[in-house]
């Protein structure tokens, strides 16, 4: 655990700084608000009304998120494998090739189905 204590120290320091900055900016800056200032910025025209919760956005982003999750997990498995690769030698290689090939199948499918195209 001692290995993580310094991280905490640094994090607290950073957090202190960030919070301080946020408070400072509120406290120090001038306050001359008007309605136009408080509107969302939209190049000077009347802002488009926003639905609650930020509205909807393209499905593409979801697909990217899903793909990311899949690949990130794959990486999670690659790391311990890589670290201990020297111990596993050929067995490790074969197993990982199988693993990567399996993921590659899904990857190829997504690619062919246009899952990677951003339009």
């Amino acid at each position: 655990m001692e290995l993580y204590t310094p991280v905490l120290a640094l994090a607290l320091l950073a957090a202190g700084f960030a919070v301080f900055s946020v408070i400072m900016s509120a406290a120090v800056g001038p306050k001359r608000y008007n309605r136009a200032k408080l509107d969302s910025y939209e190049c000077g025209i009347e802002p488009t009304p926003q639905p609650v919760g930020g509205g909807r956005f393209p499905v593409k982003y979801y697909i990217t998120a899903m793909l990311f999750i899949v690949f990130d997990i794959e990486i999670i498995f690659l790391y311990p494998w890589a670290v201990h690769f020297d111990a596993m030698k050929f067995f490790g290689l074969v197993e990982m090739v199988v693993f990567i090939a399996t993921v590659f199948v899904a990857y190829a499918y997504v690619w062919r189905r246009g899952g990677l195209d951003w339009d």
């Binding site: 998120a65 899903m66 999750i69 990130d72 999670i76 498995f77």
Partner: peptide
């Protein structure tokens, strides 16, 4: 680790 994988797969399918 395995649970994470499963959770990920579940997220993907669930979101879909």
């Amino acid at each position: 680790f395995f649970v994470m994988v499963v959770a990920a797969a579940e997220v993907v399918i669930g979101l879909a």
